[in-house]
């Protein structure tokens, strides 16, 4: 017979609500507008930011190439994961897509994923940023991304 698990359920005091004052429901659209304007101003820095992230990715790739292993692979995964999450914000949706496929490869149980396939991703990201391709419907990039996805799936489908 399964035993009843003791459970304590309680509501902490809502100090935050008292501190912040009473909201009257809905989003503060004035605050949204202010923040969106602030982001617009920040956009001038986005190209430099993504360039820095790509430089970091390249450095992690080089470290992995020099010393393939769990640690360098983990660093490379973190760099690609950053790009996956941020590139869309920085208005490079195709970089986010390629980085997501690279994450899929690096996040697998495969030991030492093939460098050539990693390079294909890193180079694709470099080219997209260098050529400032921000249109997610770019046909050449779409073909390349589909090919990368297929290649990664092939690697992942192979027995370890």
């Amino acid at each position: 017979m399964a035993k009843q698990q003791p459970i304590e359920l309680f509501m902490p005091p809502n100090i935050l609500k008292a501190k912040m004052g009473g909201g009257i429901g809905g989003l503060d659209m004035a605050a949204v507008k202010r923040a969106e304007q602030a982001i617009e101003t920040l956009k001038t820095e986005f190209t430099d930011w993504i360039a820095a992230d790509v430089t970091k990715l390249s450095a992690c790739r080089d470290a992995y190439a020099a010393t393939p292993g769990k640690e360098t692979c983990g660093d490379l995964y973190r760099a690609s994961h950053d790009l996956r999450g941020q590139a869309l914000t920085f208005e490079f949706p195709l970089v986010a897509r390629v980085a997501a496929i690279l994450c899929k490869l690096l996040d697998s149980e495969k030991v030492n994923p093939p460098l050539a396939l990693i390079d294909a991703h890193v180079n694709a990201i470099r080219v997209i940023v260098k050529q400032n391709i921000k249109d997610k419907a770019d046909k050449t990039a779409a073909v390349l991304i589909k090919e990368l996805d297929v290649r990664v799936d092939e690697v992942l489908a192979k027995p370890a």
Binding site: L27, V32, Q86
Partner: peptide, 23 residues
Amino acid sequence: KPVSVKGILTRLTAVIEHPRPFV
């Protein structure tokens, strides 16, 4: 991610207005 203004404000509003009970 990607970060959005509305996403952050919605989550902040949620933790202010609708704090979850603890277990």
